[in-house]
Each structure stands twice: as structure tokens, then as C-alpha cells.
Write a protein that binds this DNA or RNA. Structure first.
Lengths: 232, 232
DNA sequence: AGAGTTTATTGACATCATGTCACATCGTCA
DNA sequence: TGACGATGTGACATGATGTCAATAAACTCT
């Protein structure tokens, strides 16, 4: 009938490094378990295969539940990707906070922020790529992705303007520059880490740091704090 | 049965600013005319609607020829997009040549190159976006897009290394930096100009120029040659 | 534990896009 | 005119999507 444990399939599915445990430890009703199983199937799938190949059937086959049950939990593939976006978004926002909200030497904070971003996105690369790919094939989810990126635009803009008022950053029109720098980050990361084999994170981190620091604070700050490598 | 002129439909299709005339002026065999009609239908479609909505049916309806005739000319939608890529690629390569192959003050050339890039991509934005979107949904075309971007990586890398040998650009690992800067250009342009309403080209040009110049030659060159605005 | 209720799951269905194929039609040249 | 190659067409097979009424399973409460 169906496999004993509904979570791991016997065939070639490699499990992704990001898997969910059912929510409230004890109150595991069937519903929650199936929902998480689907999510994990998607995570596993996306870890090794492109979004375009992810059909509802492929997911539910891996789950061991009939295909139509999928629609009890998600309205469509993109709804599911929205959930994946929320998961990844939370991780990224945390890693990226230093420069955006922290106090101290801005160049040091910027290095830290970019280091955190690169580390997390290296670990989650294929998910991020899938999310970005999904945003191209669905009107609603495209909007979600746009808002995700705009979050960085707003935060970065605020930080740059603040530093401009302090004379730390030259007085240019910050909006288009931060827009461009954020696309730089997003798509450099997606292309570098979005599919196996991924590139090495260090050179990517150094390149991004060089570009951000040169543009905002000036190349004379480049040597500073080249130390804080991507830390565990 | 079918409309008198096979090229323009009566309904709401706005014609794109990029349309093809049949090839050899006189030797217009039916085949070439249909092929161009399909291509123009695609160009018109993409000018105002996203790639994800472009079905073979929608194209061939606009063409006035039966849907199955499409496959006489293209193997699928992505094959058609490959043709669109070649058209746009040619225009871009021309506009982008100064810094890559020219002689003279590199900062001036870089400004020129970015100006040309922004001008062309502003004019062709929706096409470029569609090409990029299409690369997410097809394995083969994804490879074409990758090679397209890698072309810029190679050329930019060569230029940077040359300038590094002359001491014009500091001595960093050029590969990852040029990779990042090219993604900066590609995706800033796609998001800024890829759908209506498009952003203004000038601020985008200024932002890209600021980032490239600061990163490569140093911010002290930024005032220089801020003149050469996007020219006809 | 067992009846009754709620919830989860299923299989069949309708729709839509794709790509293919045998056949029909057109037009050109002998 | 007639025959042949090049164009175009309609019908078909496939495979994905999302829905729904019917069924099975899970939960609740006494």
C-alpha cells in the first residue's frame, strides 16, 4: 500500500539540509504531518532539481499521498514556494541585520552583513534560485518576490542616507544605487550558489564587499576588517 | 477566411518598437513571410505581456495561421526566444564595445559603454526580461542565456586584467568581481526596464557608472566625463 | 470502547497546452 | 495541364492542472 514511514522515500531523493519537523511537538495531528511532508518533499526536490521540473505529481509521489491531497494544503506550486520564501527570508534577515541596524564602524558592519548574507545564501542557494525562478511563472508570487527585494531597498536606503548625513558616504542619489547594489547581491548569489556545483563562497564574498565598500565608503577602507571570514 | 494583411491584427495588440521586415527584399517566399509574421507576433506580445502568458496558440492566433504551422518554423517557444536573443544580443554587443575594445581614457570609455548599454536595454527592456524569464523554464535555453552572460564575463575580465597590468586598476582577483558586476548590470536593467512602466534611464545609468568606476578605477574619477549623456 | 462528527484522502473529471502526424492545399515549373 | 515540393490543417496522444462528490480515516465525547 504505502511505505511505512511517510517521510523518506527509498529511491534516489537526496534529502536537503533544510527540513522541517512537525510544529507543536506533541499535538501532531495528521494534517500538520502531511503538510510538513509535502514541504519537505519540495525542499528535497529543489535541493537537487530545478523548479521547472517540480510538478505536483512528483511531490506527492515522494510524499506517498495522492496527488489531489496537495490542494488541501496549498492552492498551487507557487503558494508552496511562498512558504519556502518565508522560511529563507527569516534566515536572511537575521544574517543581514548588522549593517542595517547595528552600531559601530559601518565598514566593519557592512563586511559582517555581506559575510552573513553569503554564508546563508551559500547554504540555501538552490532554494533561493527556485524561489526566484518561481517568481517568473506566477503573477502573484512575482509580487511577493518583488516585495522581498524591496525590503532590502528600503532598509539599505535608510542606512545610506543616515551615513550620508554623517558625511561617511558621498552625497549621491541613494535610491538607484541601493537598488542596483541589491540586485547585484541577489543575482550574483543566485547564479553563484543556485545550482550544484556551487562556487566557493569566499571569492564571492570578497567581490561583493569590494564593490559595496568602494562604492559607498571608498576604496581606502578596503583593507580594514578583511579579517572576519565567514564564520560558523 | 483569413484577414487581408497577415501582419497586423485588429484587436488590442500594441505593436512593439522592434519589428522585422521580411529578409531579402524581393525573394519573399511564403515561408519567410510566415516566419517573420510569427516573430513579429512574439515581439508584439512580449512588448506588453509577460513571457509566461505567451502560448503558441496566442501567437498563431495573432498571426492568422493555424497553431500547428508554428512547429514548421520553431521547435518550441524557447527556440523562438533564442532567435529573439540573437537579435537583441547583436544590438547590445555593438553598444557595449567601447570599454571592451576601444582605446583612450578607460573611465571615459566605461561611461560610454554603460551609457550605450542602458540606452539599448531601456529600449528593449521587455524583450530582455522575457529572454531571461524564458531561460528559467527550459534547460537548453538556460544554457544559451548563461553563455550570453559569460560573453561579458570573458570580455570584461580581459579588459580588467589589462588595466591591472598597467596599474590603472588595483590588483584584486578580477574573475569574481567582473562576474558580480555583470550580474549587477543584467538584473538591474531587467528589473528597471523589463516591464512597463519602465524606470527612467538616467538615474540607472548614473548608479551603474558610479558602482563600476568606484570599484575599478576609484571614486576620484567619478566627476570625470559625467557629461556624455545618453546620446542618440 | 463505540457512535457520531469532523477532517483528510481519493478517483474521476474537465480543461488546457504541447508536439506530432497523415492528409489537404497551394503554387510553381515542366 | 499535371505533378511535385513546400505550406498549412485538423485530429490525436500526452501530461499537467485544479475541482468535486464520494469515501475513508481520525478525532471527540460519553
Amino acid at each position: 500500500m504505502m511505505s511505512i514511514n511517510s517521510d523518506s522515500m527509498l529511491d534516489h531523493a537526496p534529502s536537503s539540509p533544510l527540513r522541517l519537523r512537525p510544529q507543536a511537538a506533541l499535538k501532531i495531528d495528521k494534517s500538520e504531518r502531511t503538510r510538513v511532508a509535502i514541504l519537505n518533499a519540495a525542499l528535497d526536490f529543489i535541493w537537487s532539481r530545478p523548479f521547472r521540473d517540480m510538478t505536483v505529481r512528483s511531490l506527492m509521489t515522494a510524499t506517498g499521498v495522492g496527488r489531489s491531497a496537495f490542494y488541501q494544503y496549498f492552492t498551487d506550486r507557487h503558494d508552496l514556494m511562498q512558504t519556502m520564501l518565508r522560511i529563507v527570508q527569516k534566515e536572511i534577515f537575521e544574517g543581514v541585520s548588522p549593517w542595517l541596524v547595528g552600531v559601530g564602524d559601518p565598514v566593519v558592519l557592512l563586511h559582517q552583513t555581506l559575510g552573513g548574507l553569503v554564508r546563508i545564501c551559500y547554504e540555501r542557494g538552490p532554494f533561493i534560485r527556485a524561489i526566484s525562478d518561481a517568481s517568473r511563472t506566477d503573477k502573484r508570487f512575482e509580487e511577493d518576490w518583488r516585495q522581498f527585494l524591496e525590503g532590502f531597498d528600503e532598509a539599505g536606503f535608510a542606512r545610506i542616507e543616515a551615513d550620508q548625513r554623517q558625511g561617511l558616504i558621498p552625497d549621491f542619489d541613494a535610491r538607484p544605487v541601493v537598488f542596483a547594489l541589491n540586485r547585484l547581491n541577489a543575482y550574483t548569489i543566485i547564479e553563484a550558489f543556485g545550482q550544484h556545483p556551487r562556487r566557493e563562497p569566499e571569492p564571492v564574498w570578497e567581490a561583493l564587499a569590494r564593490i559595496w565598500v568602494s562604492t559607498l565608503y571608498g576604496a581606502e577602507w578596503l583593507g580594514k576588517e578583511s579579517s572576519s571570514l565567514i564564520r560558523k
